[in-house]
Design a binder for these strands. Structure first.
Lengths: 281, 281
DNA sequence: CAGTGGTCTAGACCACTGG
DNA sequence: CAGTGGTCTAGACCACTGC
């Protein structure tokens, strides 16, 4: 499946100008292109970017699964017919994006939410004093979990059609016995066929790790919109707060490899003893 | 001031093992080290990290000022007696940290808050529809600006001593005529000697650009703690909201080059038509 | 010890900018 | 056109891991 044929080596840099050249690359990008194919700029793409795209394809296709080693830099260099340095630069970028993890002396691994020391990869809520480690494990409580038809709003967020099947769940996270986070989440029905409240309740460990191992869905990136709100009656009851208590509303959309949205999550965070921590640079 | 002497070239990699070697580097790091000097690990530091440290020193010392070009990669390579590739890797990291900006064909520049298209470098508040560009310029209103003695809390945040002189200011930002952000900020008195309410009011452009050009203080990094709160009477009046309106409380500490805190800012954001946007990866 | 990633070098050529 | 950053290569050696 990889160009081990073709004796026209060495492939000159001229080949780089042609993204759709069948020699090295079989259209790694340009999936979102449409119309006027010959008019746009040549869109020079460096070799290492093309290699990066090829590695990305192997990740998406599941050739290398989360937690596994990928071939060594030398092997990949031979496979793609480029120098080690070029493969290296491609891997560097993927590692910077947290898709791969380099371990000197051992190899390069596909990033995973499992076997990871951080329990909550995307959760930015921290206790005001100490770290989340010292706080002990959160108590998790699945309130609800059911399948339903996507509303227009949910469908838009998940890039589905209104009425498509979605799975909706609600849970409460408690720290030190105190309800602190109320989360509603929506998942597209098709990739998560078979996910039940029991499975969610029984599983200990990061939810995203469950998604990986059971459904082959790896979350890679997320965007959050944060607001200050007050709870409705249900929410106030579940968090055990008054109806005028200001709460942090955190709406998260999590994406898998190809920037496809795979989860919508709406969290209400109690911030009297915790805060949302962010680093700007 | 730079090691142009010393004919013991080529400096072998062995030199790298000795961070305090007078040959190439005069103690670029290890400023925060204390006690048992000979007991710790050798702390191998790659050449490019040392070069990065030297470049950082030149940035801190003001040898190259915000907005200026730094010497070309070839020049720096000659100056530090290393290959272009090594200088390149050092610059790569500094560019990734937004301290330098590379422009192909022109050179590498010291990052600056001035001459920059983004008005607010660290502000993550976005309108729910459209971008901040389309919203038009914010209306800025300095409410107050005075010098006073640092409270214990303020002093701790700014790494000062209680009672040290600090400058305190309060302002309101309005978008589309609507008061949206109320900010209190504290600056250490000494570096910002001479800053007045008039200067703040008259200056159009990013506040951090003013800090750069007038006081030689460049903000490099910041940390924020976010909560949901309700305003006190003064705050409610200034933002023209009711006393039970939930608001985003954003406490920011901004740091200059050597990770020294140089600003404490406490913002109250109205989030009925705006949201705080964050990207997780 | 072999195999992996990590660093460093030297040299070639490409892409972009501006005189 | 010269000068800058950007890409690519080939080869050497170092640091780390595990057998």
């Amino acid at each position: 499946m990889i160009p081990t044929d073709d004796a026209s080596l060495p492939h000159a840099l001229a080949t780089l100008m042609i993204p759709s050249s069948p020699t090295l690359v079989d259209t790694p990008l340009a999936a979102a292109d449409s119309g006027t194919p010959g008019s746009a700029a040549p869109a020079f793409s460096p070799l290492y970017q093309q290699i990066k795209g090829l590695i990305l394809q192997s990740l998406q296709s599941g050739e290398w699964k989360p937690g596994e080693v990928i071939p060594s830099e030398m092997d990949l260099a031979a496979r793609y017919r480029v120098s080690q340095g070029t493969v290296r630069k491609a891997i560097d970028e993927l590692a910077a994006e947290n898709l791969l993890v380099r371990r000197q002396g051992k190899g390069t691994f596909v990033a995973t939410h499992a076997e990871q020391h951080v329990q909550y990869r995307f959760l930015r809520l921290m206790p005001d004093f100490g770290d989340r480690q010292s706080e002990g494990p959160a108590e998790r409580n699945i309130i609800d979990c059911k399948r339903l038809r996507a509303s227009a709003e949910i469908a838009r967020a998940l890039a589905l059609r209104t009425g498509d099947s979605v799975l909706q769940a609600r849970r409460v996270l408690s720290f030190g016995g105190r309800p602190t986070i109320l989360e509603d989440l929506w998942l597209p029905g098709t990739p998560f066929k078979g996910l039940t409240a029991e499975r969610l309740s029984d599983y200990h460990g990061p939810m995203y790790a469950l998604f990986e191992t059971e459904f082959g869905v790896r979350m890679v990136r997320a965007e959050e919109k944060i607001r200050a709100v007050t709870p409705d009656a249900d929410q106030a009851r579940l968090l055990n707060v008054g109806k005028n208590t200001p709460l942090l509303s955190v709406e998260r959309i999590a994406f898998t490899y190809n920037d496809a949205p795979m989860e919508l999550r709406r969290g209400l965070y109690l911030t009297d003893t915790h805060h949302y921590r962010n680093v700007l640079s």
